[in-house]
Amino acid sequence: MSLNIWTGALEQGLLWGPMILGVYLTFRILNFPDLTVDGSFTLGAAVATRLILSGYDPWSASLAAVLAGAMAGLMTGLLHTQLKIDPLLSGILSMIALYSINLRVMGTANLSLLRVDTILTAIGDLTIHNFAALVLGGAVCLIAVTGLYFFLQTEVGLGVRATGDNPQMIRSLGVNTNITKIIGLALSNALVAVSGSLVGQYQSFADIGMGIGMIVVGLASVIIGEVLVRTPTLIRALLAALIGSVIYRAVIAIVLQLGMPATDLKLLTAAIVTAALAFPVFRGRFRKLPAYRERSG
């Protein structure tokens, strides 16, 4: 295995890292399976790319992308809390609505950023061009993890966590769970859009289909992280998500190098998530086998 695979995996793992943190926030902390991700990831890339091509400064373009992501999360939150639509369906509705919105933002299905200044070229000018993605991804993930870590311990953050853990209890303590859900969803999708905008600038293009299956990638990374790292504390859980993100990219790079066609990647990702989700079921079955019981008892 070449060093290239690992630097590549690290680079990509970090650039996709904020998205994984966003998925962790909704799925694990808020207990809200939010499918908006597929749309808000592309939205981040679309907004950043469109604005950069329109002559805006790449930094402000990326910031606008993040705000757009938060708006997408807000939309899902309003669908769920105000119109009482099921969480899964709220996310699906946002996702599908965003498909059209993204096309409108981009004006076309594919926008190229080749030979255009982006925040990656800006970072490259300050450091070394080959390491720009690593530096940028690392810095953004550091900020995201630190920010989330502190946010989740504020009063608002405790409210968001308790909403995912025990909504009845936190309501009985006077917190409006509609608000905390919306805050969590907006924050999560803002993080997803951060990744979208970074990835768009990293690959030098935004594509209408780039968000397809992102939610499953996010889940796969979160689960890989949880399997590899014990997560008794909040900070470890957040870092585990990032580690999962890097490992996921490494696995993808390795199977590609082993000759797996790139078109089969989504199938592989689905298989990884299925295996991880099914793990407790199988473990339960194995426990019933006498041999297993003897060994463990």
Binding site: T154, E155, A162, D165, N166
Partner: peptide, 27 residues
């Protein structure tokens, strides 16, 4: 009555702030 994934201290802090608006301050 309690949030299982959160610490004793965090649960008590939420209870202490019962009914007050949530702030962006350390809980």
């Amino acid at each position: 009555g309690t949030a299982a994934s959160m610490t004793i201290e965090e649960n008590l802090a939420m209870a202490l702030h019962r009914g007050q608006p949530l702030r962006l301050r350390r809980g």
